[in-house]
């Protein structure tokens, strides 16, 4: 399948230079490639929240549920439970999943539901024109925090490790090959996979220079070790712009999945009627 075939006719309205283009292109390539590898495109469902990130589902001619702010994960969870043959990918933002929908993110990791979350982590609210988010550093001067924010950022990878995610990685929107590899790994992983993508917002939080300087790919790390994962993940806490920022796969494990526990056998109408009548005997 040609990645070009995946584009919908919708007009793209991201700012020129937006990091979201990298994610769109990487996802197109990965889905086209995986179509011939046991992941037929019609079995893929994309779920998005609200924010600049979410427009990605309009741009792809793929099954999609364009949900509301912060609410990708519950929708995606139910789609997976309804039909475990579907391959469900959430696109979410740092405001979307770390503020408005943080509860769902933690529970998805806790349940190890077999879906993928790709976090478009630009560390600013773009669509509402520049407010601080849960991953903005302390002191971030946004429209709602003109004197600088008074909060420490959340390290989402660390949060996911503690909550029980079984695949945790970080990519960068400059670095398309690595991004494609990580997206493919995350989507192929059986269990809850979380991919944090440092995605640059050119209009409100242009960190290209800083990221180009400080990001590096972690190599040789034992991603089966929680302890080692914790060490790498903890080496940068989204608070500083003068320390190395690791990219790559930090953690991968296999454990029982939430979606393994639900029956797919539902009796037909006549049989349901018989079972209702039978059940009512217990209430006499």
């Amino acid at each position: 399948m040609n990645p070009k075939d995946l584009l919908s006719p919708a007009r793209n309205t991201w700012c020129p230079g937006c990091g979201n283009f990298s994610i769109l292109n990487a996802v197109r390539s990965v889905l086209a490639e995986m179509d011939g590898e046991g992941y037929p495109l019609e079995r893929t469902v994309l779920v998005a929240g609200i924010g600049c990130h979410a427009k990605i589902v309009d741009y792809l001619n793929v099954n999609s549920f364009y949900s509301i702010h912060g609410r990708t994960i519950p929708v995606a969870t139910a789609i997976k439970l309804a039909n475990p043959d579907l391959n469900v990918i959430c696109f979410s933002g740092d405001g979307d999943s770390l503020a408005e929908g943080l509860d769902h993110l933690i529970f998805a990791a806790k349940r190890n539901i077999d879906i993928t979350v790709i976090l478009h982590d630009n560390r600013v609210y773009g669509l509402t024109t520049g407010q601080y988010t849960p991953t903005s550093p302390m002191g971030f001067k946004g429209r709602s925090t003109p004197e600088g924010s008074f909060e420490q950022p959340i390290n989402p990878a660390e949060l996911m490790l503690d909550a029980g995610a079984t695949y945790i990685a970080r990519g960068y929107s400059h670095g398309i090959e690595q991004l494609q590899r990580l997206i493919k790994e995350a989507v192929s992983h059986r269990g809850f996979s979380f991919l944090d993508v440092l995605q640059v917002c050119v209009s409100y939080n242009n960190l290209y220079e800083s990221y180009n300087k400080w990001t590096y790919t972690a190599e040789g790390n034992d991603s089966g070790s929680k302890q080692e994962a914790r060490r790498i993940i903890g080496s940068w806490n989204y608070d500083r712009s003068d320390v190395p920022i690791p990219l790559g796969r930090f953690y991968q494990a296999h454990s029982p999945r939430f979606d393994q526990h639900f029956s797919m056998d539902r009796p037909d109408g006549a049989e349901r009627g018989r079972r209702i009548a039978g059940l009512l005997e217990n209430f006499i």
Binding site: R71, I73, P74, V75, T77, A78, I79, A82, L86
Partner: peptide
């Protein structure tokens, strides 16, 4: 989550 899950089910 309850209300959103119901709609994920409906979609599928």
């Amino acid at each position: 989550a309850v209300m959103l899950m119901a709609q994920g089910f409906a979609y599928a």
